[in-house]
Design a binder for these strands. Sequence first.
RNA 1: GGCCGGAUGGUAGAGUGGUUAUACACUUGAUUGCAAAUCAAUGAAUCUCGGUUCGAUUCCGGGUCCGGCCUCCA
Length: 464
Amino acid sequence: MTVHIYNSQTKQKEVFKPIQAPHVGMYVCGITVYDYCHIGHARVMVCFDMIVRHLRSRGYDVKYVRNITDIDDKIIQRAIENGESTQTLTERFIKAMHEDEAALNVLRPDVEPKATEYITQITDMVQTLVDKGFAYAAANGDVYFRVEKFADYGKLSGKRIEELQSGARVDVNEQKESPLDFVLWKASKPDEPHWSSPWGEGRPGWHIECSAMSKHTIGEHLDIHGGGHDLQFPHHENEIAQSECAHGHTYVNTWMHVGFVNVNNEKMSKSLGNFFTIRDVLKSYPAEVIRFFLLSSHYRNPLNYTTENLDNARAALRRLYGALDGVKLVTPAANLVSQWTDAYNAVMDDDFNTPQAFAVLFDLATEVNKAKATKDQYLAGQLAQLLVSLGNQLGILTSEPSAFLQGGIATDGLSEADIQAKIEARLAAKKAKDFTQADSIRNELKSAGIEILDTPQGTTWRRI
RNA sequence: GGCCGGAUGGUAGAGUGGUUAUACACUUGAUUGCAAAUCAAUGAAUCUCGGUUCGAUUCCGGGUCCGGCCUCCA
């Protein structure tokens, strides 16, 4: 009955207790918009979409905020390379991101704040930190956070200040008092986008935007804060430092981090160059298959990107749609609803265990198929409706079964009318007991990627 | 070097101190003109060495291997 969530900070599953139930404030770090989203980005989007959907289905009134970083070094650099303004660059990729998300059936967050729209709130927070002695302006106009002033620094990532210092993989920068200090406000170079501030013309550092935007969209104290696993340090650690020093109290109750998408057991990332963009993969696989694939392992575990795994996701989805195919949906009886939704909720309440949720769907599909076989169409219709409803909670099973099964990626060049004509011809041959001819037509279609199924309801087809 | 996570059947991927995950693939039976789909049955795994325990894949410790963070990264 209660939702349990794994908290990255305490490293254990905890009972989820919102600060002001049923309201839940959830902030997720979105992407920096200077390029197309890849499958790793897609995983974060889809996972938190799944999480919001489930929390809402459990009665929580979630305010879901996911930011857009639309100003930073890479954006500036890319805009210069392209000979365009940062604004036209970011607008283009924000649009692309929204298209990709829509394809993957990701619901839009309630608020998508952009860093450039919160400059005042950002400089206000920097000023507070300066006033309280947690930050200082350097000679060049940069403002830095004084890490050693925050005793709890490292509590999220399990790092210790002393060890970080000896690690010494930090930039040497004579503007900083300490190498660990991080930038809150960056003085702008000529030609760079800039905003005025008490410390001169400049732009926000990366970490501060999330502290400021979460405060102004949700509040100073968040129920859930999430993002990709790589953001745990330093980004989220720095957010904690900024927010807790500025506000004087706890910033986040539950930290959630989504595991990486790997390629050959290595993290998919821009810098390694081993990434696949969402829109590229969409050319080869239906969006629903990608979504299923992304949810097929637990959100915290690594997920290996391979065509084999995508093919497997497609095959699994075909089984579910195969069960739904040809069944007329009817409202399920209350006892059936509770039996199956209880099973579903039990595993989803346990830290959003989507692989087990899928197992429930497959069990349900088996029951649908059994009911179909025993000609109990009413039972089949009820179970199928449950399967659709639960699948929809995960953002899948949103297509017409026949559309999904016949959709595929068409390479055969046959129109539906062509296929239908062949099926008619084969049926005629069958009726005439000319099985050689019938089989020859079926084989012909099969080599074109079309599979014929003779069912009690008649002959149907699907793409292999 | 510091910190963290992981090793499960052919593949993917969960749970569990003793009892079926689930999916794909494989085998057999039913069904079918033959198929496909479906149902049924079967086969198939818990990295290694110790410890705790009546009993460990599960808990604890060592080892090996893999990955991540410590610099921008979802």
